[in-house]
């Protein structure tokens, strides 16, 4: 009975796989480190996952539609840097700086989406170009150095809490909820999934692939922008080197969460479980004092394993 419930729905099957992996990691690390299950450590995991989480929500839309976005982390760094520059050098009000830098992410996404339509090149190539451009722009804006010295009201706001929920976690939860509504409840989310499932089915039924693709990359860019602002608030700086290889971790999380790597199937809940798995893995390895180099090695291995499982687990 249980097996049938799982196999009837590929989404449920991959969620179960992901939950199982998360539980296995949890059990393993709670035995190897006494601190692992402490409240403060769990808080650590959640705050550390918040930035990746926002990028991963955006990546869920991109992968759902059958594309790959390699520029998300670079766009995030650009948005954080521009925000810090505006607050510190430009003396913008936070009410201007924050929305402007989040929108900048959206604009970067729209440009990527537009260039894919224009050049008819695969998305990973076009987004690779955007990755270099955004990263370079971040260096140019900041002259290659992190921008420190944000206004006090921004710092206290970013590190504060509303109803004892830390602001970063609150931002993440809002982002997740909006992403879930957009992907599962709206016509746009459905059309993104249809585009990833069959481009011809979309076009034959009058769904404009170009328009949907543009929106998908725009949404992903907005999430990169939000992640950039969040990263800036957490580190009190606009760092042009921020988030190296975060795009790969985000993609890993989405695939780990059961998305079809060729598009057509992806869930926000799965992605969040994937983000948690990777967060727990990284945190546990930190507690075991495993060096960063090996941690990246593990992320790579998890991506390959997830890609393999997603082929085995589902017949396309």
């Amino acid at each position: 009975m249980f097996a049938r419930i799982l196999t009837q729905n590929p989404n449920r099957l991959s969620l179960a796989q992901c939950l199982f992996f998360l539980a296995a990691l949890g059990v393993f690390f709670s035995f190897t480190s006494p601190y692992f299950l402490s409240v403060s450590n769990i808080n650590n995991i959640l705050t550390a996952s918040a930035v990746i989480g926002l990028i991963a929500v955006g990546a869920t839309f991109v992968i759902a539609s059958g594309h790959i976005d390699l520029s998300s982390a670079a766009v995030m760094a650009l948005c954080g840097t521009v925000c810090a520059w505006g607050l510190q050098k430009g003396e913008w009000s936070p009410w201007i700086a924050l929305p402007v830098s989040v929108s900048l992410g959206g604009v970067c996404g729209l440009v990527t989406g537009f260039l894919i339509t224009l050049t008819k090149a695969p998305s990973f190539i076009v987004s690779l170009g955007m990755m270099s451009i955004a990263r370079a722009a971040a260096y140019i804006v900041s002259h290659g150095m992190p921008i420190y010295g944000l206004p006090d009201n921004v710092i206290t706001g970013g590190q504060g809490a509303i109803a004892s929920v830390p602001v970063p976690v609150l931002l993440l939860l809002t982002g997740i909820f909006l992403g879930w509504v957009l992907l599962t409840q709206t016509k746009f989310g459905l059309h993104a999934l249809i585009l990833g499932d069959s481009v011809f089915a979309a076009e034959a039924t009058g769904i404009s692939a170009n328009r949907v693709r543009l929106k998908v990359f725009g949404v992903a860019g907005l999430y990169s922008g939000m992640a950039g602002v969040l990263f800036m608030l957490r580190t009190n700086a606009g760092d042009p080197t921020a988030g190296q290889s975060y795009e790969l971790i985000a993609i890993t999380a989405v695939i780990l969460g059961g998305a079809n790597l060729f598009g057509g199937r992806a869930t926000i809940i799965g992605t969040m479980l994937g983000v948690l798995c990777l967060g727990v893995l990284q945190n546990g390895l930190n507690l075991l004092a495993v060096s960063t180099y090996y941690q990246i090695l593990f992320v790579g291995m998890v991506l390959l394993a997830a890609a393999f499982l997603s082929r085995v687990g589902y017949r396309r």
Binding site: L193, I194, D197, S198, F200, A201, A204, T205, G264, R316
Partner: peptide, 8 residues
């Protein structure tokens, strides 16, 4: 070739 979305 039907033009259907097979995962849906």
């Amino acid at each position: 070739d039907l033009a259907i979305a097979k995962q849906h």
